[in-house]
Simulated assay, not measured.
Amino acid sequence: MRTSYQYRLKPTKKQAEIIDNTLDMLRCQYNYQLAQRFDWYENNRCPIDRCSLIVCHIPELKDKPNRFSQQATLTQLKKDRPWYKDIHSQVLQEVPKKVEIAFDRWLKGDANGKRSGKPRFKSKGRYKTFTYPQFKKEHFQKAKITLSKIGAVKVIVHRQIPDGFEIKTVSITKKADGYYVTLSLEDKTVPTVKPDFDSDNIVGIDVGLIDFYVASDNSRIAAPKLLRKAERTLKSAQRRVYRRKKGSNRRKKANKKVADTRKDFHFKTANNLLKKYDVIAVEKLNIKGLAKTRLGKSINDAGWGQFISILTVKAENAGLRVIAVNPNGTSQECSICGTKVTKVLSERVHNCPNCKVSLCRDLNASLNIKNRGTHDLKAQIMSSSKSL
């Protein structure tokens, strides 16, 4: 089982300066190595897909930079720029890994084939995290964590690491309100699915803008509409934000305050669902696409993407499951007989002409989501049992 714990750091003034300098040097190296990738891409691609009958000149192709070839240059980097010796070697080696992940996601896509946007160069203050890929547990003792090249830094330990868990990686992050350490923990003896996991204890939820979600058990939570309700207060807060210097910590703190209440609501809602159910079925929505419609402001206010991400992570840590199902037709299809009942968005009641059932539109959708989640979960269980 893998999980992560985050603690607040209390570095000295000197330690904070070292962390800031480390982040800035890593940012410069990230930009340099990303530029190498772009240079290779521009010099080796060609818009012409056929050879000329008169002349065919094929330029000499350059070797494609990769994680390992860029890591090999770091030895020379420390000779040319001795100040890079102040960074732990493994921390520096993580930079080419980040560059490769960002570049490959743009050209090839992730494991599901989904491509991300073109990687951007990091401006000052935009590179916020560095990672120690290896760490010894004894270096985290008595509310202090010993970080190579930085020293022993005070930690606010608000919860103890559970017995049996090993620290796999350590990440240092600079946020608007201070410095944080994130410990990636693993205990191979803890099963990824809890022993009393009940695949029949499933619920489907249909997220919306009137109700934040409607569940297949007919429970619902009203959308908090935090942005709408606090719009007058936020206008004043946003004015303060825009008056502040771009990139300043005060500006970041003002923005963070706007988002914290929404995130807290998402965590509490996810916890309440996971206390009742072992499996939660949700729609696999194209939230980025939906946010570009006329309902974009309300969709961003609801924060569906952040909620589903929090729900998924917390479910995995608890040995539970979140199943993402195909969203096509969940509102139109009758959850009782399967008849397609076309309706516009303003119609809030599902009336089936075939089986005569009358349901709340969102409840009908959540029942369909639950049914699809049940089907997909059984297929996954059968597939895993066959592979064993």
Rank of each mutant, 00 (worst) to 15 (best):
V203Y: 04
G208Y: 01
G208C: 00
L209I: 12
L209F: 04
F212A: 01
F212Q: 02
V214N: 03
S216V: 05
I221N: 06
A222Y: 07
A223T: 11
L226M: 06
K229I: 14
K229V: 13
A230D: 15
A230L: 15
R232I: 14
T233L: 15
T233Q: 15
T233A: 15
L234R: 14
S236A: 14
A237I: 13
R240S: 09
V241G: 11
R244F: 08
K245R: 13
K246N: 08
S248K: 04
N249W: 01
R250W: 06
R250M: 06
K253G: 04
K253Q: 13
A254F: 11
K256V: 07
K257C: 03
A259G: 06
D260M: 01
D260T: 03
D260P: 02
T269I: 04
T269V: 14
N271S: 12
N271K: 12
N271Q: 10
N272W: 10
L273S: 04
L274Y: 03
K276E: 13
Y277K: 04
Y277I: 02
D278Y: 04
D278F: 00
V279C: 10
A281I: 06
K284H: 14
L285I: 08
G289D: 08
G289V: 07
L290R: 05
L290D: 08
T293Y: 07
L295G: 06
G296H: 03
K297C: 07
S298A: 13
I299C: 06
I299K: 07
N300K: 10
N300T: 07
D301W: 00
Q306G: 10
Q306A: 13
F307I: 02
I308P: 03
I308V: 13
S309G: 12
L311W: 02
V313D: 13
V313K: 15
V313H: 15
K314W: 11
A315Q: 02
N317F: 10
A318V: 10
V325N: 05
N326A: 11
S331K: 10
S335I: 06
C337W: 01
C337L: 07
T339Y: 04
K340A: 09
V341Q: 05
K343S: 09
L345G: 03
